[in-house]
Simulated assay, not measured.
Amino acid sequence: MPKEVRKHKETIFFGLTARQFFCAVIAVGAAAGIYLGLGPVIGKETASWVCILAAAPVALAGFFHYNGMPLEQFLWAVVKSEFLFAGGRPFASENFYYNLLRRKGGQDFD
C-alpha cells in the first residue's frame, strides 16, 4: 500500500482534521474567555498576551505529531523514558552454551 494512502487524513472543516478543528475551537474559546474575563482587571494589552500564552498549548495539541504520535502519546513517552524508567540499564550477558556444557559434563572450564 502506498505511503501517501496510509497517511491520508480526512478533513472536515477548513481543511483541518477533526482533532485540529476541535483543538482550534477550544483554543479560541479559551482565549476569548480569558480576554473577556481578565481584560477589565489587568488591562487589555496584558490580557491579550495571557490569551496567547493560554491558547498556544491547546492549539499545539491539535497540530503536533512526532514519529506518528500525537502530543499526549509523545508526552507519555517522554515521562516514561525520563522519569518512570530512568536510570542505568546495566548490560549483563550470559553464555548459555558455556553454562550448558558445564552442567552436562560436570567438569569445570574455569
Score class of each variant (00 low, 15 high):
Thr46Gln: 05
Val25Ile: 12
Phe109Gly: 01
Ile52Pro: 06
Leu53Pro: 04
Gly62Trp: 06
Phe109Gln: 02
Gly105Ala: 07
Lys80Thr: 07
Ala56Phe: 14
Trp76His: 07
Phe64Ile: 05
Asp108His: 07
Val78Ser: 07
Leu38Met: 14
Trp76Ala: 13
Phe21Cys: 09
Asn99Arg: 09
Gly43Leu: 00
Leu53Thr: 06
Ile42Glu: 06
Cys23Leu: 04
Gly39Trp: 00
Phe13Gly: 00
Gln107Gly: 01
His8Leu: 11
Gln107Asp: 03
Leu53Ile: 13
Ser81Glu: 15
Val28Pro: 12
Arg103Ala: 11
Gly88Phe: 14
Ile42His: 01
Trp76Thr: 08
Gly43Val: 01
Cys23Met: 15
Ala59Met: 14
Gly106Trp: 08
Asn67Met: 02
Gly105Val: 03
Phe14Cys: 10
Glu4Asp: 15
Arg102Thr: 13
Glu82Cys: 13
Gly106His: 10
Ala56Gln: 04
Lys3Leu: 11
Phe83Glu: 01
Cys23Pro: 10
His65Gly: 03
Ile34Val: 15
Gly37Phe: 13
Gly43Lys: 00
Ser81Val: 04
Ala30Arg: 00
Arg103Phe: 08
Tyr66Glu: 01
Glu10Pro: 01
Gly68Ala: 04
Lys44Gln: 06
Ala56Pro: 02
Leu38Trp: 09
Glu94Trp: 14
Ala61Ile: 05
Ala18Asn: 00
Pro57Trp: 08
Glu45Arg: 00
Asp108Met: 06
Gly29Arg: 09
Tyr35Arg: 02
Lys44Asp: 06
Tyr98Thr: 01
Ala24Cys: 06
Gln107Arg: 02
Ala24Gly: 07
Gly37Gln: 08
Val25Phe: 07
Phe22Gln: 03
Thr11Val: 12
Arg19Gln: 11
Ala59Phe: 10
Gly43Arg: 04
Phe96Asp: 06
Gln107Ser: 04
Gln107Trp: 07
Pro70His: 09
Leu84Cys: 09
His8Ala: 11
Leu16Glu: 07
His65Glu: 15
Ile26Tyr: 12
Val41Ile: 15
Gln73Val: 04
Phe109Met: 02
Gly33Ala: 09
Val50Cys: 08
Val41Phe: 08
Lys44Glu: 06
Ala32Lys: 10
Glu45Ala: 07
Arg102Asn: 11
Val79Trp: 07
Tyr35Asp: 03
Thr17Tyr: 03
Lys3Arg: 12
Val28Met: 11
Gly62Asn: 04
Phe21Met: 11
Phe13Ser: 03
Leu60Pro: 00
Ala77Thr: 10
Asn99Tyr: 02
Phe63Val: 13
Gly37Arg: 09
Trp49Asn: 01
Phe96Met: 12
Ala54Thr: 15
Leu60Phe: 14
Phe22Glu: 00
Glu82Lys: 15
Ala18Ser: 12
Val5Pro: 03
Phe83Trp: 15
Arg19Phe: 05
Ala54Cys: 15
Leu100Gly: 05
Gly29Thr: 14
Phe64Val: 05
Ala47Cys: 01
Phe91Glu: 12
Asp110Leu: 07
Ala30Met: 15
Gly37Tyr: 12
Ile12Asn: 00
Lys104Cys: 05
Glu94Ile: 09
